[in-house]
Write a protein that binds this DNA or RNA. Structure first.
Lengths: 185, 185
DNA sequence: CTTACCATGTAAGGCGTTACATGATTCA
DNA sequence: TGAATCATGTAACGCCTTACATGGTAAG
């Protein structure tokens, strides 16, 4: 209760969809979840070991001729643990937007230099929006194959909507900063 | 360079606008910056002490008849330190949206229970949107009094735009989850 | 043959939250 | 008189990132 180490549930959630190795978990987080979550190997592997120790997951080493690989599966206990957490109300959503911080204090360096951050932000978001829309297109076409696709689609749509509004904001911000920079001269 | 403890710059940024006490800094963060940043006393007070130790801020104890209060001011060195950081490219914007995590793994508990999270999210965002719009209205009316208002306005507009798109997404998500819940029965 | 990717982990250390500790003042 | 707010800090502890360490395989 006191301890809600989120990474445990992120992993358990991914394992509820399919068996995965630590490496694959990292990739899922970096691609599918990257729009609202992040994690490094330094948190994934130890969490995986804990999960096994607590009986929420089991590890099976696949001994192939080429390469050894550790595949993790969720247990019945793990499903229960995950479900309880999923039903609990959300504790905290947080964003730490360094971009906004630098915008907020922009007066210190002026409109022109602040605009650089807006432009960099715009470029980054535009690229990620393209990726997200590709994912959504794929999901739309295969939606009925797997029950989990609806939920995946929902988070993709969340990303698309917010990213689009970010881009709108960038246009507005650039405009206002441009006008200010003219007054500054 | 290696050390980019963001809280230092958050405080320095706030002090670049006006002299503040630790308590007031906390309040600024919880009201004005809450849409894109957060911090607790346990990070603010030690950071303030470090800032003074490094010559980026000075502390003056105001001995009033009623109550003692420590007011911090930014130094010339502090301005320099802040400016350098402000001009550096953004390292990382991150969001950790527990709500999206619970949506993503929603299949585990089903559409109806997942919808509860969407509704709670919607309620929370709707309230915060009202606050943000109030701030924006005030800022619009006093924009020319202080050069920093433009930047404040920009971040408020960012919050408003994203929150509005969150609310749109909530409607869409509720609709899709409702439809799924009918199939589930 | 060398770069990129697959693959698994550990160690150190930073950063920050929560909880604790304390106490004055204001307002209903 | 009791709750809320003002006000300042510390201690413990937890979580996570970064960097390190290691090595196989695939593709160009």
């Amino acid at each position: 209760m006191a301890n809600t180490k989120k990474i445990d549930f992120v992993i358990l959630g991914l394992l509820s969809h399919e068996d995965l190795s630590g490496y694959e978990i990292k990739r899922r987080i970096d691609t599918t979840l990257k729009y609202f979550w992040g994690a490094s190997y330094g948190s994934i592997y130890p969490a995986l070991a804990d999960l096994v120790k607590n009986g929420f997951a089991v590890k099976q080493v696949i001994e192939s001729s080429e390469r050894n690989k550790a595949l993790y599966s969720i247990t019945e206990e793990g499903h229960k643990h995950l479900s309880i957490w999923l039903e609990d109300p959300i504790e905290k959503d947080e964003l730490r937007y360094e971009t906004m911080l630098k915008i907020f204090f922009g007066n210190e360096i002026g409109a022109l230099k602040t605009m650089k951050h807006v432009e960099a932000f715009e470029d980054k978001i535009a690229i990620e929006l393209i990726n997200l829309e590709k994912s959504k297109d794929i999901l739309d076409s295969i939606q009925d194959i797997d029950d989990t696709h609806l939920y995946y689609l929902l988070t993709a749509e969340f990303g698309i909507k917010t990213y689009k509004s970010y881009l709108e904001w960038c246009i507005l911000a650039k405009d206002k900063l441009r006008k200010r920079s003219l007054k500054d001269d």
